[in-house]
């Protein structure tokens, strides 16, 4: 589709020359990421792809201020992240971790566990479940007994309840079987296309990138080596085997 309107939307998130980051397998003062720059526009879907240890998760963790970069700057709506309230950032830029941790209790109790005493109506819970393609009957299920795919979807629903502008997803489908992968991939795509949510997705799965579409950053040894379209990335990965 050709853009008829000349003015592109302002970038919602900008990374400028960012270095640092933290990874479990790298000594704390060694830099995981080296001079990373990119920007994301509202409503966009950006994937970050690369081999394990390339710094994908470390990068994602800088974007919701789980860690601070050693150098460079990250801006959200034009304002540096470190000048904003970190708790406010995490509500507006929601990170869904690789492992979907469920707290003890029912799905309802999991969804109701909100920061800052945020109150939620039953209707809001049902709507959150519907957004991730789950029936309202799930509210009374024991959360720790759900399947991997169901847990992942509850985990996304929980993040959506904070009303985020950007959703960060760390390997959302890596622990899932093929069927659940398709379900979760479709759900994430829906959130972007229908709800207009800005997405930044870290993955090493060509299948997921193919379904998501959009731009892809290829990360290697903490640096962005290329930026490609999703269709191109999927075929690149197949060539590499």
């Amino acid at each position: 589709m050709e853009l008829t309107n000349e003015t592109e939307p302002e970038p919602i998130l900008v990374c400028r020359e960012v270095s640092g980051g933290y990874a479990v397998d790298v000594p704390p003062h060694q830099q995981v990421l080296k001079s990373i720059s990119f920007q994301v526009r509202a409503g966009e879907c950006l994937s970050i792809m690369g081999p394990s240890g390339s710094g994908k998760s470390a990068l994602l963790r800088l974007l919701n201020r789980f860690d601070d970069p050693q150098q460079g700057e990250i801006c959200f709506h034009g304002r540096p992240l470190h000048s904003l309230d970190p708790l406010e950032i995490r509500r507006r830029i929601a990170l869904v971790l690789q492992q979907a941790v469920m707290f003890h209790g029912t799905v309802r109790e999991n969804l109701l566990r909100r920061p800052g005493g945020q109150q939620l109506s039953e209707a809001a819970l049902v709507q959150a479940l519907e957004e991730v393609g789950l029936d309202r009957l799930f509210l009374d299920r024991n959360a720790t007994e759900l399947s991997g795919g169901e847990k992942q979807r509850i985990s996304i629903a929980r993040s959506l309840l904070g009303g985020p502008e950007i959703l960060l997803l760390d390997e959302p489908t890596s622990a899932l079987d093929a069927r659940s992968l398709h379900l979760v991939a479709d759900l994430i795509t829906q959130l972007n296309r229908v709800r207009g949510l800005t997405l930044i997705v870290v993955t090493h799965q060509a299948e997921l990138i193919h379904r998501l579409g959009g731009r892809v950053l290829l990360l290697e040894k903490g640096q962005i080596i290329r930026e490609v379209r999703a269709e191109e990335a999927a075929s690149l990965m197949e060539q590499r085997g």
């Binding site: 708790l87 929601a94 971790l97 566990r113 909100r114 920061p115 929980r158």
Partner: peptide, 12 residues
């Protein structure tokens, strides 16, 4: 992971 999940949701 549990602690990080809570932090990611915006808990102090």
């Amino acid at each position: 992971e549990e602690v990080e999940t809570l932090l990611a949701l915006g808990f102090a």
